[in-house]
Amino acid sequence: MKKVLVVDDSLSVARQLEKIIAESGDFTCVGHAKNGAEAIKMNHTENPDFICMDMNMPGMDGLTALRTLSVMDKEVKVVMVTSLGGVGDKFTEALKLGAKNVISKPFEAGDVLRILREL
Protein backbone atom coordinates (compact mmCIF):
# COMPACT_ATOMS: atom_id res chain seq x y z
CA MET A 1 0.00 0.00 0.00
CA LYS A 2 1.26 3.48 -0.85
CA LYS A 3 1.58 5.80 2.13
CA VAL A 4 -0.09 9.25 2.12
CA LEU A 5 0.51 12.16 4.51
CA VAL A 6 -2.34 14.69 4.82
CA VAL A 7 -1.39 18.32 5.54
CA ASP A 8 -4.24 20.73 6.28
CA ASP A 9 -5.04 23.07 9.17
CA SER A 10 -8.69 22.14 8.78
CA LEU A 11 -9.74 19.16 10.88
CA SER A 12 -12.74 18.54 8.68
CA VAL A 13 -10.75 18.46 5.42
CA ALA A 14 -8.21 16.14 7.05
CA ARG A 15 -11.09 13.86 8.11
CA GLN A 16 -12.52 13.89 4.57
CA LEU A 17 -9.16 13.05 2.99
CA GLU A 18 -8.32 10.37 5.57
CA LYS A 19 -11.68 8.72 4.88
CA ILE A 20 -11.17 8.79 1.11
CA ILE A 21 -7.67 7.32 1.49
CA ALA A 22 -8.74 4.65 4.00
CA GLU A 23 -11.62 3.48 1.78
CA SER A 24 -9.51 3.42 -1.40
CA GLY A 25 -8.01 -0.01 -0.82
CA ASP A 26 -4.65 0.94 -2.32
CA PHE A 27 -3.51 3.82 -0.08
CA THR A 28 -3.01 4.20 3.64
CA CYS A 29 -2.89 7.49 5.58
CA VAL A 30 0.22 7.72 7.77
CA GLY A 31 -0.71 10.93 9.56
CA HIS A 32 -2.09 14.45 9.59
CA ALA A 33 0.10 17.56 9.83
CA LYS A 34 -1.54 20.90 10.56
CA ASN A 35 0.98 23.18 8.86
CA GLY A 36 4.04 23.16 6.63
CA ALA A 37 6.57 22.81 9.43
CA GLU A 38 4.80 19.73 10.84
CA ALA A 39 4.64 18.32 7.31
CA ILE A 40 8.41 18.55 6.90
CA LYS A 41 8.95 16.79 10.25
CA MET A 42 6.39 14.07 9.48
CA ASN A 43 7.81 13.52 6.01
CA HIS A 44 11.07 12.65 7.75
CA THR A 45 9.53 10.34 10.37
CA GLU A 46 6.75 8.71 8.32
CA ASN A 47 8.47 8.59 4.91
CA PRO A 48 5.24 8.85 2.85
CA ASP A 49 5.06 8.17 -0.90
CA PHE A 50 2.60 11.03 -1.43
CA ILE A 51 1.66 14.22 0.39
CA CYS A 52 -1.73 15.93 -0.03
CA MET A 53 -1.12 19.49 1.20
CA ASP A 54 -3.19 22.65 1.62
CA MET A 55 -1.72 25.99 0.51
CA ASN A 56 -3.26 28.47 2.93
CA MET A 57 -2.31 27.50 6.50
CA PRO A 58 -1.27 29.49 9.58
CA GLY A 59 2.43 29.26 10.42
CA MET A 60 4.39 27.78 7.52
CA ASP A 61 2.11 27.74 4.46
CA GLY A 62 1.93 25.00 1.86
CA LEU A 63 4.01 26.63 -0.86
CA THR A 64 6.86 27.36 1.57
CA ALA A 65 6.78 23.74 2.75
CA LEU A 66 6.66 22.53 -0.86
CA ARG A 67 9.78 24.58 -1.66
CA THR A 68 11.64 22.94 1.26
CA LEU A 69 10.37 19.43 0.54
CA SER A 70 11.42 19.70 -3.13
CA VAL A 71 15.00 20.30 -2.00
CA MET A 72 15.10 17.86 0.94
CA ASP A 73 13.29 14.87 -0.57
CA LYS A 74 13.35 14.14 -4.30
CA GLU A 75 11.26 10.98 -3.89
CA VAL A 76 8.07 12.21 -2.25
CA LYS A 77 5.31 13.35 -4.62
CA VAL A 78 3.29 16.34 -3.48
CA VAL A 79 -0.26 17.19 -4.59
CA MET A 80 -1.65 20.53 -3.44
CA VAL A 81 -5.29 20.42 -2.26
CA THR A 82 -6.58 23.97 -2.04
CA SER A 83 -9.50 26.31 -2.48
CA LEU A 84 -7.06 28.56 -4.41
CA GLY A 85 -6.44 25.99 -7.18
CA GLY A 86 -8.37 28.09 -9.66
CA VAL A 87 -6.09 31.11 -9.14
CA GLY A 88 -3.76 30.77 -12.14
CA ASP A 89 -0.73 32.30 -10.42
CA LYS A 90 -1.02 30.00 -7.40
CA PHE A 91 -1.50 26.93 -9.60
CA THR A 92 1.53 27.83 -11.71
CA GLU A 93 3.70 28.59 -8.68
CA ALA A 94 2.85 25.18 -7.18
CA LEU A 95 3.82 23.37 -10.40
CA LYS A 96 7.04 25.38 -10.67
CA LEU A 97 7.94 24.48 -7.09
CA GLY A 98 7.55 20.79 -7.88
CA ALA A 99 3.93 19.89 -7.08
CA LYS A 100 2.75 16.99 -9.25
CA ASN A 101 -0.80 18.33 -9.47
CA VAL A 102 -3.28 20.70 -7.81
CA ILE A 103 -6.73 19.63 -6.64
CA SER A 104 -9.29 22.40 -6.14
CA LYS A 105 -11.70 22.45 -3.21
CA PRO A 106 -14.45 21.40 -3.14
CA PHE A 107 -13.18 18.03 -4.36
CA GLU A 108 -14.77 14.68 -5.16
CA ALA A 109 -13.32 11.43 -3.77
CA GLY A 110 -13.00 10.08 -7.31
CA ASP A 111 -10.85 13.03 -8.42
CA VAL A 112 -8.49 12.71 -5.46
CA LEU A 113 -7.98 8.97 -6.01
CA ARG A 114 -7.62 9.31 -9.79
CA ILE A 115 -4.88 11.91 -9.37
CA LEU A 116 -3.05 9.87 -6.70
CA ARG A 117 -3.22 6.73 -8.86
CA GLU A 118 -1.82 8.62 -11.86
CA LEU A 119 1.31 9.70 -9.95
Binding site: L11, S12, N56, T82, S83, L84, G86, K105
Partner: peptide
Protein backbone atom coordinates in the same frame (compact mmCIF):
# COMPACT_ATOMS: atom_id res chain seq x y z
CA UNK B 1 -14.06 23.84 11.67
CA UNK B 2 -16.63 22.64 9.13
CA UNK B 3 -18.07 26.17 8.78
CA UNK B 4 -14.53 27.58 8.60
CA UNK B 5 -13.78 25.18 5.76
CA UNK B 6 -16.97 26.18 3.96
CA UNK B 7 -15.89 29.83 4.18
CA UNK B 8 -12.40 28.86 2.96
CA UNK B 9 -13.88 27.09 -0.08
CA UNK B 10 -16.18 30.01 -0.92
CA UNK B 11 -13.47 32.67 -0.58
CA UNK B 12 -10.87 30.59 -2.45
CA UNK B 13 -13.28 30.23 -5.35
CA UNK B 14 -14.10 33.96 -5.16
CA UNK B 15 -10.35 34.64 -5.47
CA UNK B 16 -10.19 32.29 -8.47
CA UNK B 17 -13.15 33.92 -10.19
CA UNK B 18 -11.81 37.42 -9.45
CA UNK B 19 -8.41 36.50 -10.89
Amino acid sequence: DTVMEFVNVVCGNVAAKAS
